[in-house]
């Protein structure tokens, strides 16, 4: 465990908590893509099946359980408790265009052709693109609430910190996982445009709105 990995995990946790609190406090999930949140719940479910087969550390197990629980809670708030505030009309990204190719790819390119390994690979690939429905929704409405941009910032920061973590581990532990690294690079790139807007607008106190 190095400092980049730890702050990456904490940044990921911060993103998840920010989103939950935003929905809970405002009693509204306006501007949030339920489809992205469903995809993240699917990502955590398929990745953390090893909770049943192997124990790594108390930290590892508790963080996995927290991520899974929070992602299901978020989906519950969006599709059940605050369903009336869910902006389904703007959440129109076709998720089958992500899930089907990612499913196919995880069968073709994986470390080992076994059920758990294929599901783990599926979750890695799916996570890299799961934010697309949310970004699509923002591009469609042309704006995002500031709290939503904080959520996206911490979510992108998490993956960027993981990239530094992998460089660190490559040099100091000889550790390298091509699947995770390529997916992580793709995922981080998807946030670059958003990072630019976040720094140039949101951090200067302006609302994130896109030119018409």
């Amino acid at each position: 465990m190095n400092i980049f990995r730890l702050t990456g995990d904490l940044s990921h946790l911060a993103a998840i908590i920010i989103l939950l609190l935003k929905i809970w406090k405002t009693r509204s999930c306006a501007g949030i893509s339920g489809k992205s949140q469903l995809l993240f719940a699917l990502v955590f479910t398929t990745r953390y099946l090893d909770l049943f087969t192997s124990f790594i550390s108390l930290y590892n197990t508790s963080m996995k359980l927290i991520y899974v629980a929070c992602s299901y809670a978020t989906v519950y708030l969006i599709y059940m408790k605050f369903k009336a505030t869910y902006d389904g009309n703007h959440d129109t990204f076709r998720v089958e265009f992500l899930v089907v190719p990612v499913g196919g790819l995880s069968f073709l390119v994986n470390h080992d052709f076994s059920p758990l390994e294929i599901l783990w690979t599926f979750s890695i690939y799916l996570e890299s693109v799961a934010i697309l429905p949310q970004l699509f929704m923002i591009s469609k409405t042309g704006e995002a609430e500031t709290i939503t941009t904080h959520y996206l910032f911490f979510l992108g920061l998490y993956r960027a910190l993981y990239l530094i973590n992998w460089i660190w581990r490559y040099y100091f532990e000889g550790f390298f996982d091509l699947i995770a690294v390529v997916a992580g690079v793709v995922q981080t790139i998807l946030y670059c445009d958003f990072f630019y807007l976040y720094v140039t607008k949101v951090l200067k106190g302006k609302k994130l709105s896109l030119p018409a």
Partner: peptide, 10 residues
């Protein structure tokens, strides 16, 4: 081989 799975990561 040098490929190691990142199973200890989240």
């Amino acid at each position: 081989h040098h490929l190691v799975n990142t199973k200890d990561e989240l």
